[in-house]
């Protein structure tokens, strides 16, 4: 990923259907959009409109039925197939995921949850732990570094999860309802953080949300309805 001027995420005429015949569901019926570095974009729409499907495709865990996906200018999916065979590596290094529920590994402390993705990317244990602690401090949960997820409040856990998503300095960050489980104050803190990351790391951030608490926190909002942008 070298092209610095190209949008970080580029969807062109992406279609996706699940199942075949009478069971066929057209989840996306030709969706195109770009997200550039530094942007925080909201993705909204009624239930079943295809939001998670979009996120899964950007995150390279779901293949489109048709269309093209480029990340940082590099074609990743085109002509009905993936153009890279190391999608896991791509996810590990270039994409950060934030979930509605924190999805931290319950048997690892805050520090180790974050350090794990750094070590998977090849960093030494010592370096990984140092960077993990910096990140936790940056997210204001440094004092909970040795706690297990079950000992954290919802907001703390979500911030540790964000620290994990940021660990390898990905340029693309995908969040599925990151604030749904938080009160309005915590939700604002999370949005502040994502904004800061977009600026500090020149990242493209896509946030799926139903949440009115944060409706006004985006540069742009994409509205999906029945598999089409409106």
């Amino acid at each position: 990923m070298t092209d610095t001027t190209a949008p970080l995420i580029s969807f062109s005429d992406v279609k996706k259907h699940y199942g075949e015949g009478s069971a066929r569901v057209d989840a996306l019926r030709g969706v195109s959009f770009d997200v550039t570095a530094g942007e925080v974009v909201g993705l909204r729409g009624p239930s079943g409109s295809g939001k998670t499907t979009v996120l899964n495709i950007v995150g390279c865990i779901l293949a489109p039925s048709q269309g093209e996906l480029r990340l940082a200018g590099e074609p990743v999916f085109a002509g009905g197939r993936w153009l890279r065979d190391d999608l896991r590596r791509l996810r590990l290094e270039a994409i950060g995921f934030i979930f509605q529920f924190h999805n931290l590994l319950p048997f690892l402390t805050s520090t180790d949850n974050v350090a794990l993705v750094l070590q998977l990317a090849g960093q030494s244990r010592g370096a990984a732990r140092r960077r993990a602690q910096e990140l936790l401090d940056y997210l204001d949960v440094g004092h909970r570094r040795d706690a297990f997820p079950s000992q954290l409040s919802g907001g703390e856990a979500q911030r540790v999860a964000i620290a994990r998503a940021l660990a390898n300095r990905p340029r693309i960050i995908l969040a599925d309802e990151p604030t749904a489980a938080l009160d309005s104050q915590r939700a604002q803190v999370v949005m502040d953080l994502l904004r800061r990351v977009a600026i500090d790391q020149h990242a493209a951030i896509v946030v799926v949300t139903h949440d009115d608490k944060i409706a006004d926190r985006f540069d742009r909002v994409l509205e999906l309805r029945d598999g089409l942008l409106v």
Partner: peptide, 16 residues
Amino acid sequence: TKEIATLKLIGAPDRT
């Protein structure tokens, strides 16, 4: 299952 899905999603290799 959930932890394994998360590990895969964040890019952990099968060997892990």
